[in-house]
Amino acid sequence: MQPQELIYKALAGDRLALTRLLSLFENQTDDLAEIMEQIHPHTGKAHRIGITGAPGTGKSTLTTCLTSAFRKQDKTVAILAIDPSSPFSGGALLGDRIRMRELAGDSGVFIRSMATRGHTGGIASAAYQAIALFDAVGFDIVLIETVGAGQGEVEIASMAHTTIVVEAPGLGDEIQANKAGILEIADIFVINKADLPGAIQTENALRSVFDVNHNTVHKHLRDIDISEPKDESSSHEVQWHCQILKTVARTCEGIDNLVTAIHEHASHLIKTDRWYAKVALQYDRQFESHLSKALFASWKASLTPEDLDNLNKQLNCRIHAPEFLAEKVLNGVSISQKK
């Protein structure tokens, strides 16, 4: 099928077309710009929810509980489950579906596993396009489970309306999220595995860490919020207060509270006029990343094989520092020139 036909069919609800488009994104198709341009007008409706936290905290299990809860409210759910690619082989073991067994057979659910393919930040490089496509084809909710490698997971916050950070007791004395600096991105904190000993301690630790950091959190939010209303009198309502909740994902305990908190956060974003602004940051990033990739590619394509060879030699044989060579190219000096 041609991209045109795939888009047409996917928007009409065809799952084969949907799955093929997702693969085209992952394989960095040359038609990406055209496809996204046609999908773009259909996006903006889905509630994009990011779920992050260290491996083993129960993200996949929690995602399954959440999906079942949303299904009971008759909302359709797409799940993007991201796992790391091996830096050595480039392969990946994608095992999140193991925990999602009970969602099988429900036509209102679509689960896609995605490997990071070298992209850092806990997100796959095609994640943005995949989320947009799920949104465009009409899923009410898009759940994104990140890698949760424990560092640099902040990218999810710019892709999701609501970011849930999952913690579990027994992963060490220190709160993982604080270490990783992802405290600031949490709209909702979940202490999962509340059935295990230590859950109270984790909660107390989290609450104290959160109190200490509260000012930082405010400042950070103000930095990225373009559309924060200027009205001083209502400014105390503008600030979202991160909720801390306990769950037992294995038995789906505490999920109702979590769903309520998620809905409250969505209403808050809409009420304070930040629904679009919350994910608009991503447009800047996509624009920048695509433009820089394209400019680099077109510059590289303009080189003769000798130029390219020369450049590689100067880099690999330590003739010049890479920064110096880049500057030389920028200043319009051909890299084939000796001096």
């Binding site: 082989s89 392969g91 990946a92 073991l93 095992g95 579906r97």
Partner: peptide, 13 residues
């Protein structure tokens, strides 16, 4: 083994 050969393996349990 398939992952180590560079493939993306979805394991379903």
């Amino acid at each position: 083994a398939l992952r180590d050969a560079g493939m993306e393996v979805i394991y379903t349990g």
